[in-house]
Design a protein around this nucleic acid. Structure first.
Lengths: 199, 199
DNA sequence: GTCTATAGGGGGATAGAC
DNA sequence: GTCTATCCCCCTATAGAC
């Protein structure tokens, strides 16, 4: 391990990050990675113990990147419900799926090396939404009998599920419709007295 | 093609149905199928053109089975919102995922042979939920400004997404929590005047 | 229809020169 | 650190006997 521009090492990781998104883990062969990265087989096995090890390194970076993007998204001066809505409305690549969530159904994901970075990301999404809901509840913006934890889980699931529907339909309109439904739920739990924040 | 008990043919399909659920498509090798089914390679390629062809046959059956189960679930005398809640509360194998939805992120799913049976099932779920919502709306049970189509999409997504969260957590509690959230949404859109049906 | 034997190709990993 | 050459095994499919 050296500075940061290991050149080949980082190229290998970058290629793997792309391929994990495009193909998933099982369908991603070392040959493909090497080809895409411009490195040789030797560099691959010099820097990494194997495919799993490289995938872990790549997925750790993806998770960190997505968490960072997420943190920035929720770091606005907008009201809590508007922040959730902004998250729901973020532009998404419906066909490729969530960079992390799309991997959960592969067998290899049962190994913690791959599972934990995914879990970390999804937990973070839940954390932000949950925090927003609690803030909104405290401010009296939403009904007081709402369970913020489970509703936050629901919103996380909606986004992940919308990718599933989009892939099955091979169209973007279902994802759009799903998000419309989600936003209307956000309005439905909003107290009528605080219209400004909900809209 | 003969009667129905082709014996080996149906054994091959049955084994494939199991393996698609356990491993997915890419990770499911003809060798595994043959082993599991008790048939020889010869029977495999006598009855089917290849892996894709067998998977299509198996997935068609899975889709038909799940649709049939679904139709029965929604075919009760209960109120429309109670039928949706019953769907949300149906026992699910959180770890293995939806028999159909779990496959959408595989590359091979872009081929219509595999995609369409999945889409047919998800469309059917949407159809039932949407019908319930329209019925509820007509009866004045839910708010009149609710868009039944997009809310139905949202509920379908919630179930699919809850499998994603469960796989990432390797626990059943997140799925449970997600469904709690979904049910509370159902209550949130219910008109206070018609408490009986919502609860 | 069902079986065993076999083939071609790619997946994942190693050896060893530079 | 990086490269090319090579290995073994399993994946998918075919051949041909019974």
């Amino acid at each position: 391990m050296v500075k940061r521009e290991d050149s080949k090492r980082s190229h290998l990781i970058d290629a793997t990050k792309d391929l994990l998104w495009e193909c998933g883990y099982e369908a991603m062969s070392p040959r493909l990675i090497v080809e895409r990265s411009g490195a040789g087989q030797g560099s691959f096995y010099h820097h990494f113990a194997g495919k799993l090890d490289l995938a872990k390194a790549a997925l750790d970076e993806v998770s960190a990147e997505e968490i960072s993007t997420l943190d920035r998204l929720f770091q606005t001066k907008k009201g809590p419900l508007e922040r959730i809505e902004a998250y729901l409305r973020v532009p998404r690549n419906a066909f490729k799926g969530c960079r992390l969530g799309r991997l959960v159904h592969e067998s290899a994901i049962e190994q913690d090396e791959l599972r934990l970075p995914i879990k970390a990301y999804l937990d973070r999404v839940h954390h932000h939404i949950s925090a927003c809901l609690r803030e909104a509840k405290l401010a009296g913006m939403i009904k007081q009998d709402m369970d913020t934890e489970s509703i936050a889980s629901m919103f996380v699931a909606i986004v992940q599920g919308s990718y599933v529907l989009a892939r099955a339909d091979q169209s973007t309109s279902t994802m759009k419709s799903t998000m419309d439904g989600a936003v209307s739920m956000l309005r439905a739990i909003t107290n009528p007295t605080s219209k400004r924040t909900a809209r």
